[in-house]
Design a binder for these strands. Structure first.
Lengths: 107, 107
DNA sequence: CAGTATCCCAGACGATACTG
DNA sequence: CAGTATCGTCTGGGATACTG
């Protein structure tokens, strides 16, 4: 590890990061937004079979609160909300790719 | 993402990987083994304040079962058991580093 | 020393219903 | 359309005690 020093602080830092991605649905939501894709709430609902409105809303709120997802509300009737990744959220893509590469290395 | 194609499969692959690291104590155990360090059960217990024997054993078993940690039992009395990372487990270090780098990028 | 075995609980998650 | 509210379930993890 480059800048962190003790096993404790490094482990804790990584844990904090992983918590951002924990949650039954976050990764699949993320992957439906990678590549600059923009999705409405109802569209994500249709893209992700089995998810409830409660969970979709909750996970999106958390991703938004963590600065990974950007939420845009259009003040129309009926309401229209769009979700996309922040720049930082987009930057997660190559990192997850590194994780996949690691998994492939397994002997 | 390089080789995976649909958001579903990619997300699922990453989830499978992250599950290997989930668990209240796995990361801190890992960081106490990075760099080729070898530790005995009781030593890890002392290194990790607050962990119970049950949890330490459980998390080690899972890491072992997942091929990340190597367990060596010396048939002595009293028993002696050593834990170290597999090569694959060691290879996780730079990946977690990438994760830390990403976290630092946050605007 | 290096573990198991039990019991318990908080919090994550799902199902369902309701709303501005 | 895009959510909240409520309730029930299930499981990861903690406390404690015991063992080859």
């Amino acid at each position: 590890m480059s800048k962190t020093h003790t096993p404790e602080t490094a482990a804790q830092d990584v844990e904090t990061i992983l918590k951002l991605l924990e949650g039954r649905w976050k990764l699949i939501i993320l992957f439906h937004l990678f590549g600059g894709k923009v999705q409405r709430f109802s569209h994500l609902e249709r893209l992700i079979p089995g998810i409830s409105q409660k969970m979709l809303a909750q996970q999106l709120r958390q991703l938004e609160g963590d600065g990974i997802v950007l939420r845009t509300l259009y003040p129309e009737v009926p309401p229209k909300v769009e979700y996309r990744l922040t720049d930082w959220g987009q930057a997660l893509c190559p990192v997850l790719d590194a994780l996949l590469q690691w998994a492939e290395q397994r002997g």
